[in-house]
Amino acid sequence: MTTTDTSPAVVPQLGPDAASGRKLAIICSKGNLDMAYPGLILANAALGEGVETHLFFTFWGLDMITKATMDDLKFTMLGNTATHMPQGLGGLPGMTALATSKLKKAIADLDVPDVPEFLEQIVASGGHLWACRLSADMNHLGLADLDDDVEGIISASDFIEKTDGAQLLFI
């Protein structure tokens, strides 16, 4: 007697039908090195899952895509109790530089790219970078001052319009 295996094949849900139409909007408002990473990591993860992803850089977050500053973001112990160090120490000369270089090393040791390279990877993965109009005007910056991959300097309402139906993260 022969039997036929009729149980369905176990296959991960990765096929062409898996696309969900899901969209993610991430607003990056911080210019500290440590606060640049959450948005970049989440954007990268979302893109890797086939989620359409838009990043909007506003206020200090504009530093992340400004040519003059994007590779020179800093990390400070000041005001950050999560370092569990005496706050007075953070104010000593050279401490911010020291903390920054330590954090950069820790990030590189994990094979996580620096900010400019991370943005490059996000764009190569299909992510969209937008600069905030008001923040650019406040800092007297034009598109030429920003990373070449930035698609445009747009108003907050333009961004809301572009990300219709998206889930939103404010960082």
Binding site: P12, L14, A18, A19, G48, E49, G50, Q121, A124, S125, G126
Partner: peptide
């Protein structure tokens, strides 16, 4: 990375 997305669309790593 761009080509990996072309070769293995949507969820390349998985």
């Amino acid at each position: 990375v761009k080509d990996l997305f072309r070769l293995f669309p949507q969820k390349p790593a998985k």
